[in-house]
Structures are given as C-alpha cells and as structure tokens.
Nucleic acid binder design. Structure first.
Lengths: 339, 339
DNA sequence: CTGAAAGCGCTTACAG
DNA sequence: CTGAAAGCGCTTACAG
C-alpha cells in the first residue's frame, strides 16, 4: 500500500545486530566462502531477524550491472514471440537475471527509446525480436545485442534463428514433389528481412525445378487479414494456382478462410502451406502443413549467447542456426488430375 | 560488446562542460522549470556533446523507487496472459515505467522468489496474474499488489477482472434458451478460483431454471488435453448431454476435437461453449460460442489501479469489474428434436 | 535561479 | 578471516 511508514532495514542494521562490519555482512551474503562458518551463521541469523533484503539499486550502482536482460518485441501478445520470450526467461532465471520487456509495436522511435534502457544501465544486454535497431552504428558498438529470428544486418550483432531460405525451399519442393507446378508465393510484409529470405527460398526452389515460368510472388503480410486479401486479389485476377506457399501460418489461415468463403476446398482445390507452426496451426481445419520453428530453443540459445557476450571481454559476432522441421499436415495434397 | 574500455560520462562531466553544478544539471534534466532558459540550453548542449545518459541505478537509489512494475504470470506464452500483459505495457509506457516479467509456471516457490524483487526495490508494485501469493500476510501489508483475473482472496489486495459467476450464468442460460436441458459443465482445474466461480455460475443457472436434476459437473482443466480427456470420460460413461459448457476456450477446443474424433458433430449432436474468446476461438471450426474478456482493457485498468495505489499514501483495496460479452458463434445451436 | 554538501545502501581494494 | 573507508552517480533540502 503506497508509502509505508516503516523503513526497510539496511545492511548496517544487520551488521549492528550481528556485531560485525557491513563488509562482513556483504561477504557473508555474496561470497560466503570468504567468511568463517560462525560469522556466517551470526549474519544469517541477523538477516532473518531483521527481515533484511538487499537494496538492489545500491548493488547495481556499486557493481555497475543490472543483472537484467532487455527483450524488445513488436508484439508481446503474438504467440510466436511470447514462446521465444519464454525460452529466454528460462535461461535468465537460471542465471539469476531478470527480464525487462519492451513492446515496440514495430515503431522505430519506440525501439530507440527502449534501447536507452541499456545505455542508462537498467539492463546489461538486449535481445531484439523486432528486426530493427534504430541506433547509429557507433553507439551499437558498446552494447551487447543479439537479434533473434529476423536478422539485423549490422556488423557486430550476433544472431540466432533458422534457415529461412532453406525452409521455404523445402516446403516448396514438397509441393512440387506432390505434383504441383503452378505454385504462388504469398509473401510477407515488404521491407522485412524474413519476407525476402522466404521469398528467395521459394524462387530458388521453383527455378531449381525448372518451374521458372510459374515463379510468381504476390504481396501479402504476416496477418490473417493479409492472407485473406492476397487470396482475394488472386481470385479477382482469375488465375488461381493449385498451391499457395504463405509467408507464415497466420497468412495461411487467412488464405484458407478466404478460399473456403469462395466455395473452394483446401487442400482439394488448392493446397496451402504456412510457416512457424504456431499453436493454432495444428488445431485449424484443415491442419496446416508448415515449418516448425523451435521457438523456445531459439530463445534459450539466444539468451545463452548473450550471457557469453556479456562475460567475454570481446567476441566477434556469432550466427547461430537452429534446426527447423517440415511438418506435413492436411492443408496440402496432390493437385487434381485435371489441373 | 562485453566490457567497454570507455567509461560512460556522468553528471559531473556534463556539469563541467556546461560550467554549472551537478545540481543544476540534474534540475535542467528532471525539473526544467526550476532552471533558467539559458542554463537549460547550455546543459542540454553539454548533454548532447557528451552523449550523457543518466545512471538509473543511482537515480533509483537516491529516489528509492524503480519506476518499474513487476508482472507475474503462470505462462507468458499463453495468449490469454500475454494480451493482458500488453495492456499493462501500454499504461506503464505512458507513465515512463518499465516492466519486469516473471514466469511462475504456477509454482509457489517461484512466485515467492519473484516477489522478492519488490522487497529489494527492483520494482515498485506487482500485478499478479497467477492467482497465488505465497507470502505471509504481514509482509504483503507493505507491498503494492493487484491481482488480475484470478482474484486472490487476501485482505488488502485490489483486484481487476470480470464477473465469472455471471458470465457462466449467461452462457448457460443461452444454452437453456436454445432448448437444452441436459447440459454438463466441464470445469477448470481443481483449486483454481476461476474454476469454482464459473462452476457456481453454471450451477446457479441450472437451479434457477429448474434444471437441478441435470446439474452435473465433471472435472476438466484449462488445456486442450483436459477438454479431450473430459469428453473421453463422458463417452465412456455413455451418458452424453446435448450441450457442454467448458471452463475456457482451450478446453472447449479439446472437447470438440474429441467429439469429432468419435464421429459426433458440433453443434448438431452436441453444443459446446468456451470462455475467454482467445484468438483461436473465432478461427476454429466450428467457431466457438464464448465469453469475451477484454483482456487488453483488463490489463490497462489494473495498471492504472496500481499507479493509483503507488501514489496514494493509503488506500483501501478496490475491486474492479470489467464488462464481458457473450459471443454467439457456430459451436452452439438448438438440440435435436429427438434428444 | 544556482551551488555546496550530504547521503541513498551497497561493495571492494587495502591493510591487518 | 575481518574492518575502516572510499566511492559508485545521482538528488535534494538548505542557504544564498
């Protein structure tokens, strides 16, 4: 309840009660090995009796570290990000660090403001899930940063993610192997690095299979609405492919909903694939063929890497590739014979 | 990258450059009105030239506040919680506060450890989404706490959530009005306050409509798996109702999947209702009749309430009720005539 | 409107 | 193994 009258006990209160110096209290608590058994017991007893808690601001100031990781994401409420966050949390907790989160809403200004938390010492390093940086390269130099999923193409930033190009090649090849030739890619948001990587994967697969004449990408996005709109365009154009390779699961869901709405069935009339394997992908009907990203592991690896960088005096940026997996479900099948 | 050789500029560096005292620098930055225009300009210029950032640990120590809110939740990756979190974030950002998150995994020990962050001054108040406290009442006294969604029945804790009893009455009454009589409630996890409130709502509705003889609750939970298992039991028992009222959407999804798997159709053979209106509820087929909780608003209200408590010297705990809404979709319809 | 100085609560060389 | 003392970088009465 608001302002409490009672003042919190400090390390001197404990010291007085234990009849030792504050230095000894500090040691007994932080580096118990440096203190005799009996002293330690005395101190611990005094701590208990006073109900003492360390003042972490004082500790931070003195030690010049926050024991905190900053996580920037465009949208906390998106399960794709929140599962990565959960992996980060695992590792942070393991190492007694706390997590500060910042929702950027994809806004550069907000990203900039949030990175200030690093510069003012409130966090020791940051994990960037938003694929954007908004900081001049010379300021980045001194910060411990890791990009996750969407790689930030700036020197000196480590990265953890999957092979998006390869993954989209795999899923496109799968469709080709089923017999599809007229395969359209509904791509992600413009300017997003994941969009272009996935698009590249699609195009490479098409070209490698001699399907260059069918190579066609239409603009889409990462939301259900984007998928619907893209299919809407496609239907208007009258040139419907037998398969749609979408940039992510949400777009695939939108695509399927729009197809159904127009009396088409998935996968019989059109096969549709997603990307990410978010929870809904397996529950949707039809269950969606997709690429599974091990999000929790991605988060864990990224956090570990950040800790490495924080403890190393200097390290060159690393790029970590986490395995992905093609998951075949019900939204894809062989094309109709007459197609 | 890791340890930087260059030391960060401090307030004295700025003071020296601006040829004023550190006190003046502090005022120019924190309370500009107390400083003359020309002095302010000088200071701001020096700040820019030194690239000065305040050291927040020092500020925290001096001011004895962290400008940080702690959010405890059982599972970050669950969209139900992450959308509330997003609402909290809105308000916190508005008031220049940061958010520390803690995943409790529903473990009491973890909850306890995380609440230590309040006691050591790393956060000024906490929002509890996990319905558990794990702290002796006398220690709670001095803390600013708000429970969200799952009310914590302890004195001196404010709460923000919806009327779970009323909501489940509404949804049960809807089913009754469609003509259902044999309606079974698949309840939430045992020991959870939301479970018992929703169960109460169901029971009240049944009794109020003179359907006491059909009043039947079976144990379930909040996961897809729980819903499946509950329906599995029901099928084994051979006594299938015409409608199932589930404790949340995930359980409803599980229930529907299990019914379908056994050749039954929803809603024709059995109507099924959910609770929460998580994103998947509208996308699932059939789209799920449910209770919409305005999660973002719940988060916002809770954060506002916490700020109020932090600024008030003393306040008695408040209980805030946010409106919910019955959303009718495709998973419920009138029972078969022969039922 | 501005400055000198105290002090927030720790930790850590340094000395013994 | 322990203590005295300096100092981390701010803010804020107090005085002018």
């Amino acid at each position: 309840m608001g302002v409490s009258a009672k003042k919190r006990p400090t390390i001197s209160d404990v010291a007085k009660l234990a009849k030792v110096s504050t230095a000894t209290v500090s040691r007994a608590l932080q580096t118990p090995d440096l203190v005799s058994q009996s002293t330690r017991d005395q101190v611990l007893d005094a701590v208990k009796r006073t109900n003492y808690r360390i003042n972490s601001a004082a500790k931070m100031l003195r030690q010049n570290r926050a024991a905190t990781l900053l996580v920037l994401l465009p949208d906390i409420a998106n399960p794709f990000f929140s599962e990565i966050l959960s992996g980060i949390e695992d590792i942070a907790t393991e190492r007694d660090h706390t997590i500060l989160i910042g929702n950027t809403n994809g806004e550069e200004a907000r990203t900039h403001d949030l990175l200030d938390l690093l510069q003012c010492g409130r966090a020791d390093g940051a994990l960037l899930l938003n694929g954007a940086l908004a900081l001049p390269p010379d300021e980045v130099e001194a910060l411990a940063l890791i990009s996750i999923s969407a790689e930030i193409p700036v020197a000196n930033i480590s990265h953890v993610g999957i092979d998006n190009v390869g993954a989209l090649q795999e899923i496109t090849n799968h469709l080709i192997s089923l017999g599809h030739r007229n395969i359209v890619h509904i791509c992600g948001p413009a300017g997003n690095i994941l969009s272009s990587q996935r698009r590249t994967g699609y195009e490479q697969a098409m070209l490698d299979s001699g399907l260059g004449e069918y190579n066609r990408t239409i603009s889409g996005g990462f939301t259900v609405q984007d998928g619907k709109a893209a299919v809407g365009e496609l239907l208007k154009s009258g040139d419907l492919p037998t398969a749609l390779v979408c940039a992510n699961d949400d777009a695939a869901i939108g695509a399927i909903l729009e197809l159904k709405q127009n009396g088409l069935s998935v996968p019989q009339d059109v096969s549709v694939s997603g990307f990410d394997d978010v929870p809904i992908a397996s529950l949707f009907s039809p269950a969606i063929t997709t690429i599974r990203q091990r999000r929790k592991e991605i988060g864990q690896q990224a956090a570990r890497l950040l800790f490495e960088e924080l403890s190393a005096s200097a390290m060159k940026p690393q790029k970590l590739m986490v395995d992905h997996e093609l998951v075949l479900r019900d939204s894809t099948c062989a094309p109709r014979k007459d197609a």
